[in-house]
C-alpha cells in the first residue's frame, strides 16, 4: 500500500533523508525508532505533504498513486492520516464543526452524502467517551487550551472518525500517562484490520500495548535495521550508538 523507495529529501541545502526504503502492506503495523534528528518527523511531514521540504531523489507510491505529486488534502482523501507530534491550536474554529467538515470532505470524495447531524453527534460523543475526552472539549476551539494528552487524544479521535487506510502516528505516546496511553492504544487497536500504521516512537512502553509487526531504526537519514520485538529490547538495552556506526 505504501512504497518508499530510495527517498532523498532535505530542507534548503541540508539533506535529512538519505535514501529511505520502506514498504507497508495492508493490515501491518510498522514502528520507527531512532535517535533525535534522524529524520523521523521529517519523514512523516514529507509523507503528509508539508511544504518546505525538497525531495531530491527516490519516489513514494501510495495506493498506486505517486504520493509526492499530490497536495496534502488529496493525500488525506486517498486515505492517509497524520497524527501530529505537536497539534496546532486553531482559535475560533469549533472542534465539533471541524470534525463535521473533515468527515464530510471524505464522504464527498467517496461520492457519499453529507453525514446526518444527530447520529454523527452521537458517534462523536461515544468515541470521545471511549478516549476519556471530556465532552466540553468538543465545543471548544480545535486544540485551544488543550493539555498535551488532550491534544493527542483529539488526534486519535479524528483518526477514528476518518478510518484512514494508513495512519502515521508521530510520537503519539510522548507526554502521556499510563491511563492515557492505554486508552489511546485501545483506540489504535480498534482499527487493526482496517488501518495500517506507521508509528514513530522513542519508547518500548507503547509497544507493549500496540504489538508491532515490524520495527525499523532510522538513523542518519536511512533505515539501518529492521526486525521484530527483539529489536526493541536490544535498543532499550544498548541505545542507538551501536547502530549508527553501521
Amino acid at each position: 500500500m505504501l512504497e518508499i523507495k530510495n527517498l532523498h529529501a532535505g530542507v534548503d541545502s541540508k539533506e535529512i533523508l538519505k535514501g529511505v526504503d520502506l514498504n507497508i502492506n495492508v493490515n501491518e503495523v510498522h514502528v520507527i525508532m531512532g535517535p533525535n534528528g534522524a529524520g523521523k518527523s521529517s519523514l512523516s511531514n514529507i509523507l503528509a505533504g508539508k511544504e518546505g521540504y525538497n525531495v531530491t531523489g527516490g519516489h513514494v507510491t501510495f495506493e498506486g498513486k505517486n504520493l509526492l505529486e499530490l497536495p496534502a488534502d488529496e493525500r488525506a482523501l486517498l486515505g492517509l492520516y497524520l497524527s501530529f507530534q505537536y497539534p496546532v491550536e486553531i482559535p475560533g474554529v469549533s472542534n465539533i464543526n471541524f470534525f463535521k467538515s473533515i468527515v464530510n470532505a471524505h464522504r464527498k470524495a467517496k461520492g457519499q452524502d453529507e453525514i446526518d447531524a444527530m447520529p454523527f453527534l452521537k458517534e462523536i460523543r461515544e468515541k470521545a467517551a471511549e478516549l476519556n475526552i471530556d465532552e466540553q472539549l468538543l465545543y471548544r476551539s480545535v486544540n485551544e487550551g488543550f493539555s498535551g494528552g488532550e491534544k493527542k487524544r483529539n488526534e486519535i479521535l479524528q483518526m477514528l472518525l476518518l478510518e484512514p487506510k494508513l495512519a502515521i502516528l508521530d510520537e503519539i505516546d510522548s507526554g502521556l500517562d499510563i491511563d492515557a496511553l492505554k486508552v489511546i492504544s485501545e483506540g489504535v487497536n480498534s482499527l487493526r484490520g482496517k488501518t495500517s500504521f506507521l508509528i514513530i516512537t522513542h519508547y518500548k512502553r507503547l509497544l507493549e500495548y500496540i504489538k508491532p509487526d515490524y520495527i525499523h531504526v532510522l538513523a542518519n537519514g536511512r533505515i539501518v535495521k529492521s526486525g521484530g520485538m527483539e529489536l526493541a529490547d536490544e535498543l532499550e538495552a544498548k541505545g542507538y550508538s551501536w547502530l549508527e556506526s553501521a
Partner: peptide, 18 residues
Amino acid sequence: DSSALFYLQSRGLSYENA
C-alpha cells in the same frame, strides 16, 4: 497561520476550504 492551514489540509480540506 500556515501550520493551521496545513493541519486542516492534512485532514482532507482543500486549500480554499481551509
